[in-house]
Design a protein around this nucleic acid. Structure first.
Lengths: 210, 210
DNA sequence: CCCCGGTTGGCAGTTTGCTGCCATAGTGAA
DNA sequence: TTCACTATGGCAGCAAACTGCCAACCGGGG
């Protein structure tokens, strides 16, 4: 892959086929993802012949609502990766050794497209954006500390929301004040990165929480 | 299975294993389902040794939003089945030859439970409810006639909703009046059988529409 | 004991979403 | 053209949801 090429790749299989050697050789990996389905597919161990010195990952808070996903994140973090949580919308991104950038694009016909960039100036630009996002995000452990409590109530809130009943009914059902219930819903929506209840419903379903 | 037995079955596999002979022998099948994942799994042709004389199916309007599901429904209908659409919430049900009732229950640990009833009085009761639902529903073809137009706009409405923007913004984006946009949303929600936007988001995602 | 930081929930005001009503405009049939 | 029917969208009133403010209510230190 030449240094100034922009390669368009369709599907994760092709992506990994063409970038396996880069992953294998990378000593520094930085990535960002909105949900957990991206970049998280287990890859053959053969792809990895030496542990990269630094791994940085940025996720949306929503992934923490899925217990197994949260567990996986903690696992990764305990192996030396830096995992952070951001409240902002973020494009799915991988940066290898500050030299190659992989940007996820749209899904057409069920397969996602990826752009692989190696041009130094482009990589430089993406890298600075990534750094900004990184600075604006929170360490996983710190975030989780204040998040554990929300998770306790979240499933029941989600059940109420998904049942289609109105806030007043749901609050009564959960023995909460209307104000408190709505506070919880607001926290939940912020955790899901949603700005409308419809969107929150979609994301909750995407994460398999309902 | 004795005539006055209520059998509880866990999972579709067990259900079909225990009722395959009933399906094979049935000359009249009536069923109702909210979405398309139930009862629609293709079954081995060996289960069927003579075509039932009448097949009746009731679905929620939401299934028509999924093109492939709608196509499948038309296919079934063209083979002689009576397919209808109802606006009401409806429990997943199968009635075989007016003698055996299968009612879907809750999902626990990922597998759905089913109750198989053969008691004449119970079957009678369920049957009358089914008939009521049947009378209150609309022939597929008739329903689709007035539905085609909604489907034209639905994807864009869904995109707007899923993007989290507010109605005013979405209406502008689609060159619609606010009133008309909200009318479309209301139609869509009714089609999805949702009473809140959160619920609509969940169902839209369930149907893979976003 | 008091003080503190945090949570709760009532109240009120604002925003957003919902719907009936109706004037208007377009379309097709008689 | 005239009539009937339907879609549109503005308006108004209402319902639901969001939010700031604040008083009340906890535990845990001092």
């Amino acid at each position: 892959m030449e240094a100034d090429t922009i390669a368009l790749v369709r599907g994760e299989e092709e992506l990994f086929a063409r970038t396996a050697h880069l992953f294998a050789a990378a000593s520094e990996i930085a990535c960002a993802a909105n949900d957990f389905s991206t970049w998280s597919r287990p890859r053959p161990a053969s792809f990895r012949n030496s542990a990269p010195s630094t791994i940085r990952k940025i996720y949306r808070p929503g992934v923490l609502l899925d217990p197994s996903a949260a567990e996986h994140l903690r696992e990764v973090a305990s192996h030396g990766a830096d995992v952070r949580i951001t409240l902002e919308e973020i494009n799915e991104t991988i940066i290898l050794d500050r030299r190659v950038v992989i940007l996820a694009g749209d899904v057409v016909d069920g397969v996602r497209g990826y752009s692989v960039l190696a041009s130094p100036s482009l990589v430089q630009g993406v890298m600075s954006l990534y750094e900004a996002a990184w600075r604006g995000s929170t360490e996983l452990a710190a975030y989780e500390a204040g998040f554990a409590e929300v998770r306790l109530l979240a499933p029941r809130i989600l059940d109420m929301l998904a049942s289609g009943c109105k806030d007043e009914t749901a609050a009564r059902e959960l023995n909460l004040g209307l104000r408190t219930y709505r506070r919880r819903v607001a926290e939940l929506m912020s955790a899901l990165g949603a700005t409308s209840r419809f969107q929150a419903g979609v994301r909750a379903r995407e994460l398999g929480l309902v």
